[in-house]
Amino acid sequence: MPNINLDNIDNMQFDVLKEIGNIGAGNATTALSTMINSKVDMNVPKVDLLELKELPDMLGGAEEIVVGILITLEGEINGMMMFMMDQVSACRIVNILMGKDSVLEEFTEMEYSALREIGNIIAGAYLSSLSTLTGIKINASIPYMSIDMAGAILSVPAIEFGKVGDKALIIETQFTKDDSDVNGYFILIPTLESYDVILRSLGL
């Protein structure tokens, strides 16, 4: 039975978690690509063990303004899934979807719900592929959205992790549209016990 110890994760476990990020983000990237009818590339996922205080800085600075869509996971796997992109990227995606060419301003109610729906669809694609792969049922919440400083948004998962320790293990994948004007991240943040559940379901 695997028992993940944050200070001592073996290479095998790292590779498996990376592959989970790969499959999940692959499906999510495809969903995004279909939606905006444009090629979207993704990086090799990173599995990172971060000190909580490093978490707000992981996306290019605690004060960077980002659109964060958060889905909480419950059931056999607990934790959070986040989909984050910078404000300019979010604006571009909304423009593509709505066939507009507006400059960055405040999002309207309509654009706001479009963004949330995008988050819902691509996070759903990520999670359903994870669920298929592992055979684990994942109950996802409705998407919650916030447009604010990255540090403030990331404080929400950081606090959840803070209840059990001082480090967070995250699976992070960056994606980029072909002409690199849309950038974002998928971040899967399961609880420690959920990592065990995932690894066990894969026979590790």
């Binding site: 400083m149 990331l154 606090i159």
Partner: peptide
């Protein structure tokens, strides 16, 4: 952290903290 004049302290991106 602590400091005395003329220095200052800052924390970035406070959310629910």
């Amino acid at each position: 952290n602590v400091c005395s004049s003329p220095d200052a302290l800052t924390t970035l991106g406070l959310g629910s903290c």
